Computed example of a mutant assay.
Amino acid sequence: MVAATDRPVRKKTEVAVATRRRSERWQGPVTLVVLRLAVVAVALLLWQVLSGPVLPEYAVSKPTEVAQALVKLLGSAAGWIDIRATVIEVAAGFSIGVVLGAVIGLLLGSFPVAGRVLEPLVAAFNGIPKIALAPLFLLFFGIGIWSKITIAVIGPAFVMFYNIYLGLRLRERELMEIVQVMGGRKHHLLTYVTIPTLAAPFFAALKTGGPLAILGVIGAEFIASTEGLGHGLFTAAMNLDAATEFAGLIVLVIMTLTLNGFLSWLDKLALRRLGLLTRRRPAEERP
Rank of each mutant, 00 (worst) to 15 (best):
A152N: 03
A237W: 06
P120V: 03
T208M: 14
A236K: 01
A242G: 07
A237C: 00
L107Q: 01
L190T: 09
I154W: 01
E177V: 11
L274Q: 13
R84W: 10
T244G: 11
A123Y: 10
Y165T: 07
R273V: 07
Q180A: 14
R20T: 09
L240E: 08
R21N: 13
F140W: 15
P211Y: 05
A199I: 05
N163R: 08
Y162E: 03
R286G: 04
Y192K: 06
I143M: 12
R169P: 01
R21K: 15
A18T: 13
V2T: 13
L277W: 11
L240P: 00
P63C: 08
N126F: 13
S147P: 03
V193Y: 03
E174C: 00
P29N: 11
V251E: 01
L73S: 05
L233Y: 01
V34E: 09
L252K: 04
F262Y: 10
R116W: 12
A270Y: 08
V159E: 07
L252N: 05
L198Y: 06
M182F: 12
A224W: 09
I81T: 14
L252F: 06
Q180S: 15
L175N: 06
I81R: 12
H231D: 02
L37G: 04
I131D: 02
V71A: 14
P120E: 03
R185S: 14
I154D: 00
V71L: 14
V60M: 07
V49H: 02
V251C: 04
K268M: 12
V9I: 14
I214P: 05
R10P: 01
P29G: 10
E284M: 12
I223G: 01
I250N: 03
E14R: 14
G155H: 04
A67G: 10
L212N: 08
L263Y: 02
G155A: 11
R10G: 05
R173A: 13
A236T: 02
S23I: 13
L73C: 02
A224I: 08
A41L: 14
L206K: 06
M238N: 15
D82K: 02
P156R: 08
L233A: 02
M1G: 15
L168S: 04
V33N: 05
I128A: 10
M176I: 13
S110M: 09
T208S: 13
M238V: 07
E245P: 00
I223M: 13
A123G: 05
A237I: 10
F203V: 12
E65T: 12
F141Y: 13
E14F: 08
P129D: 10
A236Y: 02
K186Y: 11
A18W: 08
G275M: 07
G232H: 05
A78E: 15
G155V: 03
A247L: 06
G101D: 06
V71T: 11
I83R: 02
Q180T: 15
R286F: 12
